[in-house]
């Protein structure tokens, strides 16, 4: 029963390309949405379950992407090895920074993670020699998975959908594990959790590392899928957008975060036709959803559906 939602998601992801073969909105935007699902689900572990905000999550996404980009183009490493290196780098940096950063609370934590994200972004822009500067790195070779070369939009849809499902499954399991319970205690009251004998610092560190790993994994896939990386994809606005996905969908719910990621990806594609009005509508919608459904779209809508059912 716990995994019912997961199977539903998997069937949905598999059916879409069969129902709409070679449709841009399924395979291209679907793949973008899939990457965002990976990022949002990872970030939700931190924001939703551990109650720790991060306004710098795009930095880990970028580390994965740049590790893959630099190692495959400049040193001709095989893709999977580069990906592993990216995970290692992002994980280690997350682990190093976790304790001092997660000691902070509320807006101070927001500031610290934001600053962290900006520092990493400045390095991407300024370290020309390694990162290609503001114009980024191009010519990233396709990913080779044990002899199978992932090339073309349809194959990428498959790979990213599988990866997104994997992160959802992992997230569901983490939430249900001992560390998941410890985290929920931290979110309620960190002090109380400590009193109960929960090692809150280590629980928070572990989840910070896990969420950084999810992001780096997505970043590495992103680099190969686009065959191109540039700092724009990892700036402050992207970090803010990731938080928005989690909150919009519904915090502390893996499926909420996933739905938020999909909703925001689609919203952007839909709003682009409004040209100069795009910003106005985007901002207005964000405010409206948060004012009228402070628990997020997923929770808000499922409550509305339940109410409707009861009335009938």
């Amino acid at each position: 029963m716990r995994l019912a939602g997961f199977y539903l998601f998997a069937v949905f992801a598999a059916l879409l390309p069969i129902l709409f073969p070679d449709n841009y909105f399924v395979i291209v935007i679907g793949a973008s949405a899939g990457l965002n699902v990976m990022l949002a689900v990872g970030l939700n572990l931190l924001i939703g379950y551990a109650g720790q905000i991060s306004l710098g999550h795009a930095a880990f996404f970028g580390m994965g992407a740049y590790a893959s980009a630099i190692l495959t183009t400049r040193f001709a490493w095989p893709g999977l090895l580069a990906m592993a290196a990216g995970l290692l780098v992002a994980g280690s940096i997350a682990w190093l920074f976790a304790r001092p950063i997660l000691r902070l609370r509320g807006h101070y934590l927001a500031m610290a993670t934001l600053g962290f994200g900006i520092i990493i972004h400045v390095i991407m822009v300024q370290a020309n020699h390694w990162t290609g500067g503001p114009d980024g790195l191009s010519g990233i070779p396709p990913l080779n998975l044990l002899g199978w070369t992932v090339d073309g939009d349809r194959q990428w849809y498959g790979v990213i959908a599988a990866a997104a499902l994997l992160t959802i499954w992992l997230s569901l399991n983490i939430v249900d594990s001992r560390i998941g319970r410890a985290l929920r205690a931290v979110r309620g009251s960190e002090f109380a959790a400590q009193m109960m004998g929960v090692d809150t610092a280590s629980a928070k560190t572990q989840i910070f590392v896990v969420s950084a790993l999810f992001a780096a994994f997505a970043g590495s896939l992103f680099a190969h899928q686009q065959a191109f990386v540039s700092p724009d994809s990892f700036n402050l606005l992207i970090s803010v957008e990731l938080v928005t996905m989690v909150v919009l969908g519904g915090m502390a719910s893996t499926f909420g975060a996933a739905c938020g990621a999909i909703a925001l990806t689609l919203l952007h594609q839909g709003l682009v036709v409004f040209e100069d009005y795009e910003m106005l509508i985007h901002g207005g919608l964000l405010m409206a959803v948060m004012i009228f459904m402070p628990q997020g779209l997923f929770v808000g809508l499922s409550q509305a559906v339940r109410r409707l059912k009861n009335e009938i």
């Binding site: 070679d22 841009y24 291209v28 935007i29 973008s32 980024g136 939009d153 686009q226 191109f228 540039s230 724009d232 994809s233 594609q269 682009v272």
Partner: peptide, 13 residues
């Protein structure tokens, strides 16, 4: 640049 890639795919496909 990420949007550019998606939009060009949208233009083509």
């Amino acid at each position: 640049a990420k949007e550019a890639v998606n939009f060009v795919k949208r233009l083509i496909k």
